[in-house]
Simulated assay, not measured.
Amino acid sequence: MAIDFTEYFEKYEAIVAEVDAVFTKFETEMGDLVKCGKGCSDCCHALFDITLAEAIYINHKFNENFSGLERSQVLERADKADRQIHKLKRKVYKATQEGRPANEILNEVARARVRCPMLGDDNLCAMYEFRPITCRLYGVPTSIGGEAHTCSLAGFKGGEKYPTVNMDIIIDRLINIGKDVQKGVDSRFKELGNMLLPLSMALVTEYDEHYLGVKGVEAPKPKKAAQTGTTFTGSKPTPQEIVAPGAAPKDDACSSCTEDKSSCSSCDIKTVVLGGE
């Protein structure tokens, strides 16, 4: 039986409307500094995670609007992006184990580039109308954890004071919707609402009773995703894998890891939330 997410989607869309209004205000009042335009895809290579509410919403819209060859091509790109992100997170974990400074590691992550699976060959977003909130605000000054960020291609200059969007407040509101989902479906996963994951993983996940941990529904044994008729071979995350925000899927990237098996559990737990500048 499909879960009805309508009330959560309405809450999410209300936040999207507010965010779009804020961006429009920047364009109206500081149009010479906002450089976003058709064909610019700088934000489409930034690394960031999305909340559960966004993931379910975007997944729903993807399933509604994509089929056939176009869908298969997106899933192939999502699989490729997942593998890149998974390897990067393992690299980050290894760096923390070596004692490298946190700022050095985070700066390295911020410089990493992974192509968004929704970015088409024409350099346009195939799902622009339903893009994540981070994408909607990428070209204007934002604050995350008290630190200011902005697109490197924008006209906003360092050292100057500008109106800034507090992303922490927006993320808290999105996480609260995720918590509402957790309570609404009566999930046995207490931290489900706090979950963060890459867009690429959100596209290939099936947000059903098993994944969301609905009480009374027996969880299936983990298994690899079925072939889709393309080269997509990534494994869908299962309920048992919801162990930490941003946890990467267990796929073939594990076989290329240089760590021994004893480090696997620590690697899965000590993941990081990726955030582009």
Rank of each mutant, 00 (worst) to 15 (best):
Tyr162Met: 00
Pro163Leu: 05
Val165Pro: 05
Asn166Lys: 14
Asn166Tyr: 11
Asn166Gln: 13
Met167Cys: 11
Asp172Lys: 10
Arg173Glu: 08
Arg173Met: 05
Gly178Lys: 01
Lys179Glu: 06
Lys179Phe: 06
Lys179Trp: 10
Asp180Leu: 10
Gln182His: 08
Gly184Thr: 03
Asp186Met: 14
Phe189Ile: 13
Phe189Asp: 01
Lys190Gln: 13
Leu192Arg: 02
Leu192Phe: 09
Gly193Arg: 00
Asn194Met: 12
Met195Ala: 03
Leu196Pro: 00
Leu196Arg: 14
Leu196Lys: 12
Leu197Met: 12
Ser200Asp: 02
Ser200Gly: 07
Ser200Asn: 03
Met201Ala: 07
Met201His: 07
Ala202Gly: 01
Ala202Val: 05
Leu203Lys: 02
Val204Asp: 00
Thr205Met: 07
Thr205Gln: 09
Glu206Tyr: 10
Tyr207His: 07
Tyr207Val: 13
Asp208Phe: 13
Asp208Tyr: 14
His210Cys: 12
His210Lys: 10
His210Met: 04
Leu212Val: 02
Gly213Gln: 10
Val214Asp: 03
Lys215Asp: 08
Lys215Gln: 11
Val217His: 02
Val217Trp: 01
Ala219Leu: 09
Ala219Ser: 14
Lys221Asp: 14
Pro222Ser: 05
Pro222Thr: 00
Pro222Asp: 03
Lys223Ser: 05
Lys223Glu: 11
Lys224His: 04
Lys224Ser: 09
Ala225Val: 06
Ala226Lys: 15
Ala226Ser: 15
Ala226Tyr: 15
Gln227Val: 13
Thr228Leu: 04
Thr230Ser: 15
